[in-house]
Write a protein that binds this DNA or RNA. Sequence first.
DNA 1: TTGAAAGCGTTACCAG
DNA 2: CTGGTAACGCTTTCAA
Lengths: 321, 321
Amino acid sequence: MARLAGVSRATVSYVLNNTSAVRISEPTRRRVREAARELGYVPHAAARSLRAGHSRMVLMPAPAVPVGPLYSRFLDELQSALGRLDYTVVQYGAVGLQGDEAARAWAELRPVAVLVPGTGLGPQGVAVLKRSGARAVVTLGPERVDGAHALLTDHGAVGHCAAAHLRARGRRRIGVVVPEEPGLEAFSRPRLAGVRRALRGTEAAVTELPLAYTEQAAAELAARWRELGLDAVFAYNDEYAMLLMRALQDEGVRIPEEVAVVGADDLVLGRLLRPRLSTVHIELPSGRDLAELVDRAVRDPGGEPEVRKVLGASLVQRDSS
Amino acid sequence: MARLAGVSRATVSYVLNNTSAVRISEPTRRRVREAARELGYVPHAAARSLRAGHSRMVLMPAPAVPVGPLYSRFLDELQSALGRLDYTVVQYGAVGLQGDEAARAWAELRPVAVLVPGTGLGPQGVAVLKRSGARAVVTLGPERVDGAHALLTDHGAVGHCAAAHLRARGRRRIGVVVPEEPGLEAFSRPRLAGVRRALRGTEAAVTELPLAYTEQAAAELAARWRELGLDAVFAYNDEYAMLLMRALQDEGVRIPEEVAVVGADDLVLGRLLRPRLSTVHIELPSGRDLAELVDRAVRDPGGEPEVRKVLGASLVQRDSS
DNA sequence: TTGAAAGCGTTACCAG
DNA sequence: CTGGTAACGCTTTCAA
């Protein structure tokens, strides 16, 4: 830049980085600062990290599905926690790249750490990222990936929790709503599996209920409700629960007498329904903890990958079950 | 990298970029490709853009507030549209930097375009970005900023639409819910102003109703409802509308006889309430259009800044008003 | 058809 | 204390 400030580039670097190893005269500092402001000088991150051989960028693929308030909060917390640790968090617009191909695209940015929600990253992808200089790869999903740290979000626990509750309440024929919206299978499948697991070896039976998030789809499901002969339903989450409850009530099905309903996510919404919605409260990891994990991993890239279960599920009983 | 592939770096560059200006022998190409795969070679985006003097990165600050399905959809569309135009969309984790300070942080990444939702970027910030090589700066907010293209989202129109409707229905004492959640003022204030504008010069009166998004806050508001003497309320959006409606119904206030309620956002939710919720349907710009605007601006950085109104508001009347 | 070399903006290192 | 120089990985121009 301001070789035009009358000094050398090195001097500029010293001044702007407050390098303490060398001492620059006050007048010089002033000259440099002034010139910087005047020229609207902004350091060039790419050049810096090229020279340094590493960056402070933590890369996350941007979530593809509209994301609830829970995950939003978590993400926010994570970002500010990492920010305080002097990392720059960047969400990479996921443009439908698949798995290891995506990993290569991410690697081009040479992030110091990569945080991958969901599945789709294989051991190969992890290897690519690490070779390209990523000092930490952390997955946030149902299963661990070789070479990466893992935050295991076992959505099975959500279904398990709901099903165990329904069974304890004496319900035996249990429906499970499976959203038809694409992108939600990642959550709905494990939740369904969790229900199955909870009921294995009991006399209770599970019925899958595919459902699109529209009034009409819910009405159609409700119309054939009696012939399904269910006495309980785990509705995937609170929003689908609301959709289904309304349709059932319009159909004259009494809740919870004829059918118990349980949602998930513990949204404010559920408390506003009548009957009040029983739900599975989901506890995500604290953003601060995760930020610290990332920082630790970056500082000690050789360490054993940490694997940690991070999804807490607990039932909140209200009036719908 | 693969000087170890037996060829020169230039050759590698040619092969991997499919440079058509020069012709490389097929065997060489193969050798290079193979070596690249074997070594897990991934080009270094920073080096590339350093050399090229520009990047294909479109930068967006990540929204600070949990964002509804509307905006999510819009963002998704935008990202894939830009992806198809061969841009890389990156969301920068907003770490509470203010205005032009944030602009400097963004400028460090030398994005080719910056897309800024909300206020907080001043003309100075725009200038910094442009000087640092951004060929397009587009704001998405209530007012234009000198030097930047603007997509004007006039949330006043939302309030205006709701208020005009309520007035046409004969309501005269109109409450307006103002969320207490931080970060929402950016939307709630203009919406309130829009209501005021719609009712100016009429005999209708406006009452502000601050409200936190909790059951208790809603109950407290409902408890003193009669003394407020309102015959209509614009509830900020559908979610606050649901919250308030429930509290009012618990209090025995009849909707719409005693008080008409209008929400906004036209969520599925509103159709599930009883009475069905009247709402303001909001039309965001199509992601494709915006992507094209960005692309045009990048190709012709000298052009006049485009200023465009992009927020459509139309009332959907149901049973609550 | 291929190779060599320059240069993008930074910063570490060493000589003045 | 300050300034010159080299090197990070890449693309491009020029020469072989």
